[in-house]
C-alpha cells in the first residue's frame, strides 16, 4: 500500500514540476520542450511499477516495467528474429513494392483523364476500408511465410499512396504548367522538373501514413497464420500462454520499430522538402 501512496505523491510532485516549467520563464526553450514530456513519461512508468508492485497485480493482467525490461534483455535473439521476419521481410519489402506500384499507377492516372476520373474515386473509397481483412485471403494464396505478409502490406500501402501521389501531382498551378509550355517542355520534363518535386510534401505525407499501416498489416496478417517466428505470431502465442511479459516486450520492439521507421521517413522528408514552408528553419 505504501508503494501506491508513494506513486500518488510522485505523480503530484511531477505534475508540480511540469506546471512550474511549463509556466516558467524558460517554457519555450528546447530543454523544456524535451524535459516536460520526458518527466511525464518517466513518471507514468514509475507509477506503473510502483502500483503493480504495491497492489501485487498478477502478471497475467499487467507485468511491471522492470519485468518487461528483464524479459526484453533476456530474449534479444528471439525478438531480433521476430523483428527480421515481420519488419524487414514482411513490412519493409511490402512497403517498397507498394510504394513503387503506387507511383506507376499514379503516373498512369496522371496521363489519362479518364483513369483519373474513374480510378481515383475507387481508390479513395478503398483507402478508407479495413484492408487488413484481406489478410486471410492473401495468406491462403501466398502461404504462411513472409510473402503473404508482404502482399497484405502492398495492398494496404498502395491506395493511400496512390491517393496522395495523385493529389500531389495536381499541386502545381496553371501558371507553372503554362510556364513549362512556354519553354516547350515535354511531359516527362514537366513531370521530372516541376510536378514531382512539387508533389513531394504530399508523397511524404503518404509515406508516413503508409509506414504505420505497413507494420500493422504485417503484424495482423500473422494472426491468420505464420511460421513459428514473427512479431504477430509471438504476440498471439504468448497471449495464449499468458506470458504477458513477452507480449509487452514484443510491443516495445514494435513501438521502437514503428517510431524509428516513421522518424527515418520524417528525416528524409526534412532533407528533400527543405524548401516547404512547414520545414523551413529560421
Amino acid at each position: 500500500m505504501n508503494l501506491v501512496i508513494a506513486a500518488v505523491i510522485l505523480w503530484l510532485a511531477a505534475m508540480w514540476v511540469n506546471i512550474r516549467i511549463a509556466n516558467g520563464p524558460a517554457d519555450d526553450s528546447q530543454g523544456a520542450k524535451l524535459a516536460v514530456p520526458l518527466i511525464f513519461g518517466l513518471t507514468l512508468l514509475a507509477m506503473w511499477e510502483m502500483i503493480v508492485r504495491g497492489m501485487e497485480v498478477p502478471m497475467v493482467i499487467l507485468p511491471a516495467p522492470s519485468v518487461i525490461a528483464a524479459r526484453l534483455t533476456s530474449s534479444i535473439p528471439i525478438l531480433w528474429a521476430d523483428f527480421v521476419q515481420t519488419f524487414v521481410k514482411g513490412a519493409l519489402s511490402g512497403y517498397v513494392i507498394g510504394v513503387i506500384a503506387a507511383f506507376v499507377a499514379a503516373i498512369a492516372v496522371d496521363r489519362s483523364d479518364f483513369l483519373r476520373r474513374g480510378l481515383l474515386p475507387v481508390g479513395n473509397f478503398v483507402a478508407a476500408l479495413p484492408i487488413v481483412g484481406t489478410a486471410p485471403i492473401l495468406v491462403m494464396w501466398y502461404g504462411f511465410d513472409w510473402q503473404s505478409k508482404a502482399a497484405v502490406v502492398v495492398v494496404m500501402v498502395f491506395f493511400p499512396m496512390l491517393v496522395n501521389i495523385t493529389a500531389g501531382l495536381q499541386e502545381t498551378s496553371a501558371m507553372q504548367r503554362d510556364q513549362m509550355k512556354t519553354w516547350a517542355a515535354g511531359y516527362w520534363q514537366g513531370l521530372w522538373k516541376l510536378r514531382l518535386p512539387a508533389a513531394m510534401p504530399f508523397v511524404f505525407n503518404g509515406l508516413k501514413i503508409a509506414s504505420t499501416l505497413a507494420l500493422i498489416g504485417a503484424i495482423v496478417a500473422e494472426f491468420f497464420g505464420s511460421p513459428i517466428v514473427g512479431m504477430g505470431f509471438r504476440i498471439s502465442t504468448s497471449v495464449g500462454q499468458l506470458a504477458l511479459d513477452m507480449v509487452w516486450a514484443e510491443i516495445v520492439v514494435a513501438a521502437i520499430a514503428g517510431s524509428l521507421f516513421y522518424g527515418g521517413i520524417a528525416v528524409i522528408e526534412r532533407i528533400v522538402t527543405f524548401w516547404h514552408p512547414s520545414q523551413r528553419r529560421g
Partner: peptide, 16 residues
Amino acid sequence: ARAYGYVFQAAGLYPW
C-alpha cells in the same frame, strides 16, 4: 522554336 520568354504575374520560382 523557343522564340520568346514569358514572365507571369507571380514570379513562380521553384522553392526547391
